[in-house]
Amino acid sequence: MDLMSEGLRGMRTGAVGSRVIRQSGAWGLRFPAFAGSGFHFVLHGSCWLITEDQEPVALKPGDVVLTSSGAAHGLSHAPAALQDLPPLELGPFPPAPGPFDFEFLCGAYRLDHGQVPQYLRALPDLIVVSPDADRLPGLLALAELLRVDTSGKGLGTGATLPALLDLIVVQTLRQWHDQHDATARWPKTEDPVIGGVLRMVHEDPGRSWTVGGLSEAAGMSRTAFTRRFTAEVGRPPMAYLISCRLGHGARLLRETDATLATIARRTGYSSEFAFSSAFRREYGMSPTSFRRTPTELGA
């Protein structure tokens, strides 16, 4: 079961943004913690990645920093303490004009409602990848496409922006996985039994699943299945099922004009009221309000 793909689908329920930032001279920026995921792609110059409790990491052109679940961090022309760096002012600001020493591209998914998917939370807080141009030449091309798209803000940006963010994150994670294959815990299940159950749930989230039914499909007792599922996925079966259903509902709200009654049926809820109540508990707002919230912002 490819939990990476499912996790990225979950991130699409949030707002997406991208921005090119340029700096010169002595500079530093702090990125406060946020609910979501994002990345920085170094386009020109060099800098240092600053965190609260790790040694600074030198970055060069082509390097990618992936913030898997919104951990606080900073970028600076020289090693520094994170708390000493000024916070970045968020917004769709154009890059500073004139000569510059350093240029980087930011992309982010921001979840004002709901939680970062489990597979992203299982990754290290910050991942640094130096792309292999011979093996993954597409990553550099994708960064250039995103830079041009971000600078232009032309027609179709609402479609291209999330697609480009998805592709850059996937390419980055693939290379990170290859480089850490011997030691990293890749966020997917290698357990064929649990993988089969996850596939059934994701293919038909609206079905009347129960722990008993899932454990029977897995050929295990309820107790053994619940223990094994929780250890492998990080959440109990019903908690995962509810999150999956509501995530599917959030995507339907964002991507379709389906009525609440239709979405409720397709996500396994008996009524609009039941779906709306569960959705409000998970996302902190009604389905109608969620559908109306913007899906683009400044990174």
Rank of each mutant, 00 (worst) to 15 (best):
180 H>R: 14
11 M>Y: 04
143 A>S: 15
112 D>N: 02
123 L>I: 03
241 L>G: 12
1 M>F: 04
253 L>F: 01
76 S>E: 01
69 S>R: 08
206 G>N: 11
27 W>G: 09
175 Q>V: 12
89 E>N: 01
43 L>M: 08
264 A>H: 00
72 A>T: 10
79 P>M: 05
158 G>Y: 06
142 L>E: 07
156 G>T: 00
37 S>A: 13
212 G>P: 01
209 W>I: 08
179 Q>E: 11
174 R>C: 00
7 G>L: 03
153 K>G: 03
188 K>W: 06
80 A>G: 06
238 M>Y: 02
187 P>R: 04
211 V>F: 12
155 L>R: 12
73 H>R: 12
93 F>R: 08
260 L>D: 15
113 H>A: 09
109 Y>D: 02
12 R>I: 03
166 D>W: 14
135 R>F: 08
166 D>K: 13
248 H>I: 00
212 G>H: 14
214 L>M: 12
58 A>V: 07
26 A>W: 05
235 R>C: 00
232 E>Y: 00
119 Y>I: 07
278 A>K: 04
59 L>N: 07
98 G>N: 10
298 G>A: 09
237 P>V: 00
112 D>C: 02
41 F>A: 06
111 L>T: 05
139 L>F: 11
114 G>C: 01
244 C>P: 00
67 T>C: 08
225 F>Y: 10
34 F>V: 11
29 L>D: 01
175 Q>N: 14
132 D>W: 07
253 L>R: 04
117 P>D: 12
192 P>A: 08
284 G>T: 01
225 F>C: 07
41 F>D: 07
76 S>N: 08
229 F>A: 12
271 S>M: 01
71 A>P: 05
150 T>N: 14
104 F>D: 11
290 F>A: 10
45 G>L: 10
73 H>T: 05
44 H>Q: 10
217 A>Y: 06
206 G>R: 10
13 T>G: 13
217 A>T: 05
259 T>E: 08
235 R>D: 00
116 V>L: 05
25 G>V: 04
33 A>M: 06
78 A>S: 06
54 Q>R: 13
163 A>N: 15
111 L>C: 05
73 H>S: 01
189 T>S: 15
42 V>R: 05
272 E>H: 03
180 H>S: 13
76 S>H: 08
101 D>G: 13
17 G>T: 06
26 A>E: 15
